[in-house]
Amino acid sequence: MSNAVLATPEVPFESRGLDKKQTWWERLRKGDEVVHLITLAGGWSILVITGLLVQHLWVYSRLSRHAFGWHFLVDSTWDPVNGVFGAWPFVYGTVVTSLLALTIAIPIGLGSAIFLAELAPRKLSNALTFLIELLAAVPSVIYGLIGIFLLIPVLFNVVPYVQKYFGWIPIFNGTFYGVSYFSASIVLAIMVVPFIISISREVLISVPVSQREAMMALGATKWDVTWRAVVPYARQGIMGSIFLSLARALGETMAVTMVIGNVAQVSTSLMAPGYTIAAVIANEFTEATGDLYLHALIELGLVLFVVTMIFNALARLLMLTMKGHEVVG
């Protein structure tokens, strides 16, 4: 058997073009290396841009960094005329408005997410979520517009009553001018609520049925199941959505600038006007005379960058570690 003779091919292989030499044109056309390199340049440009961004913020804030050091963050004098720059009023305003905004937004956002994920029929839920996500697409400057001409007039009618009964509490006293930490926080809360809702809803929906059934088998009510089984199971994703919202609130510029009053002071009362980091940059950047002034503003940008990056990174990390669930947004 090993000597069985086999027939020869009728068509020699040369005629199939398999052996033909590759022309340079064919090489180029078929060449994956060129495409690989070009797309690689596109991908890596992200790293270059981010690197440049960090470098520029660092270099262009050097005068201020050298002049004030860490005191920059805690000094409360912001006096461009005499070249003294302390960012405490802005840091304070940013932290207060963001935290207050989250305090308002988290319960409402989480409540809506629970309703949309657990109670509403899926079709209705999808339609409502689509509407709510529209809210996230409204530009910041339009929230500012609404804030100035709709929210503040409403607050002028409401706040006096609050102050009448609760004015003895320090955070509610003082004259209300309309523009205030409080107004800014409400606008911010409206702006971050869609984020909390849409991410949390998705996380809640993805909780496995087994988690619910285990509780239901014990005779739990719908609310028990949701609050004691579903929400704890999804808490990582929910925390992620909150961090993402916090990062967004901290860096939000236009809407806040338009309703916070832009006064570089630190007030206990939420009804008083204030300032935030982003707002002072937006207001004073084009008017900054002198390099130190400009560098101080850019250092504020650096601070904002670092803080928002930390919360963004935390949020991404939380969502990455959630098994088999990825949220892009």
Partner: peptide, 22 residues
């Protein structure tokens, strides 16, 4: 082109496949 020979295969004896000898 030269005709093929199964013996060209290494370990050709393992190829259990041949012309029907009949």
């Amino acid at each position: 082109m030269k005709p093929f020979d199964l013996s060209q295969l290494s370990r050709a004896h393992e190829v259990r496949f041949a012309a029907d000898e009949s």
